[in-house]
């Protein structure tokens, strides 16, 4: 069975994927995880998970433009440029009429 290992380097930090190894059962996984990922005190805690138990999701339909759901939102670069141009034109025309 393949086990995936997530390691925490310091207390309070997130667990980060460290790698994987083969082990026939949990006691073996416990022993090997310690040897591979903690024997040099490089981890303060480990999550050791059978790969089969991980729910993996890697397909996400994106048929419509739903960019607005993302944190970065719409790209407004192009629109901003147009707006600036328009604002610029307005300013220069008003300049001409000034005292």
């Amino acid at each position: 069975m393949i086990y995936e290992v997530f390691r925490q380097e310091r207390k309070g930090q997130p667990f980060v994927h460290g790698g994987s190894f083969h082990a026939p059962d949990r006691p073996f996984a416990d022993a090997y995880a310690r040897e591979f990922y903690a024997r040099r005190q490089e981890s303060v805690a480990l999550w050791v998970v059978p790969r089969d138990e991980i729910l993996e999701i890697d397909e996400f339909p994106d048929e419509f433009d739903l960019k607005y759901r993302r944190v970065d939102g719409y790209s407004i670069k192009a629109r901003l440029a147009i707006a600036r141009e328009r604002a610029g034109a307005a300013t220069s025309s008003s300049d001409g009429e000034g005292p």
């Binding site: 190894f21 082990a23 022993a31």
Partner: peptide, 11 residues
């Protein structure tokens, strides 16, 4: 017999 055990036993 296998890599993981090699590392563990050597340790």
């Amino acid at each position: 017999p296998f890599l993981e055990e090699d590392v563990a036993f050597s340790s």
